[in-house]
Amino acid sequence: MTGPETRPEQAPPRATSPVPDLLARVGRGDQEAFSRLYDHIAAPLYGVVLRVVRDPSQAEEVLQEVLLEIWRLAPRYEAGRGSAMAWMTTIAHRRAVDRVRSEQASSERDVAAGHRAMAGQDYDVVIETVAGKLERERVRRCLDTLTELQRQVVTMSYYGGYSYPEVASLLTTPLGTVKTRMRDGLIRLRDCLGVEA
């Protein structure tokens, strides 16, 4: 299944990341550890929240809620259930998606934004951190190994915050195809990035 072109990219230096240890200390109520954890997670979490929410002041508001949620729930994080970063990212992404979907409930969603995300046009935002730049290059190389449709459905839903039926309607593609492409696209991305579960 994994062709030569999807050989795992060099994994980032996660083994030495202080994040898991810091989160464990935060889970024991260590505020100083939280301050240090903040420096490691604020940029990745803000980046994804901003992607989904789009409005910087709303993104900041959502991020503040997310960070407090992380502080509050840290005692319940268990390393056996996934990496610290994935746990925190899931909290951030869900919260951002909840925000846009609740807003959309009363008004029609910005379809143009969906098409921009679909076309990958706003993929090129300014990246301010070095770690972000390296990670972005890796992820981008791997996204390039996906089929066009796989890449579209993955980036539209993750960065655009669209549900899969919304993606299907924006792309005028059958529902079943969209959910299948989301799964096999992510699997291919996972294998290319050498993600370990």
Partner: peptide
């Protein structure tokens, strides 16, 4: 998915 997030930090 977390890697997708880290790539747009």
């Amino acid at each position: 998915a977390a890697r997708l997030a880290a790539s747009v930090q």
